[in-house]
């Protein structure tokens, strides 16, 4: 079943189509939510909310991109809205001091399990976590991030720099602890 057909059937209320959509993308959307909020139960509830919204708004899907990327955008917007309402999106002031940390090698990072990387990312402070996910995982530009989060591009760049620095520290510690 093509993406367009699946979206059309979901919009019409077809239960089997919705089950198909859930089977295809629910687990992936759950991981996406967990990357942003860092809590499994909250991530699951947000994934449910996102699926409900996707079922209701499936008629708005346009075949410019894949259905998966459209679902991803709907979910990201919903998660960011949740974080904003919960006041977890307080922007870190630019004056915060930044220590330069040696960047890890790509070979070192490749040795680290995915689950561990996911845990490291989910433990970042909320705002840095969101910017890192949007830039490095979802592929948003700083301009798009600033428009989405209502911050300046310079702020987005600064937050990404700090997130990278914190992740680099965590990776170094993990490698040292596990002797990789």
């Amino acid at each position: 079943m093509t993406d367009v057909e699946l979206a059309r059937l979901c919009a019409n209320g077809d239960e089997s189509a919705r089950k198909e959509l859930y089977t295809r993308y629910a687990a992936w959307l759950y991981a996406l939510c967990f990357r942003y909020v860092g809590d499994r139960e909250l991530a699951r509830d947000l994934m449910h909310d996102a699926m409900i919204k996707i079922f209701d708004c499936a008629g708005k899907y346009q075949p410019h991109g894949s259905l998966k990327s459209w679902c991803s955008r709907v979910t990201v917007n919903l998660v960011i809205d949740h974080l904003r309402k919960s006041r977890q999106m307080d922007v870190v002031p630019l004056e915060e001091s930044v220590t330069t940390v040696p960047q890890p090698d790509t070979e070192e990072v490749e040795k680290i399990p995915k689950e561990e990387l996911l845990r490291m990312v989910s433990q970042l402070p909320p705002t840095k976590r969101v910017v890192f996910n949007l830039y490095c995982v979802e592929g948003y530009s700083h301009k798009e991030i600033s428009a989405l989060l209502n911050i300046k591009e310079k702020t987005s760049s600064s937050l990404l720099f700090k997130a990278r620095g914190q992740l680099a520290e965590n990776i170094k510690e993990y490698i040292k602890r596990n002797g990789l």
């Binding site: 991981a31 699926m51 960047q103 490095c136 592929g139 992740l167």
Partner: peptide
């Protein structure tokens, strides 16, 4: 480079949902 690798690994990652998750979603819907 190293953040690209993280991004690539995390973007394709899926979680594990409980068996009754679809029923729970139906009730919420």
């Amino acid at each position: 480079d190293w953040t690209d690798i993280i991004g690539e690994q995390l973007s394709n990652m899926s979680g594990t949902l409980p068996a009754d998750d679809w029923k729970v979603l139906q009730q919420k819907y």
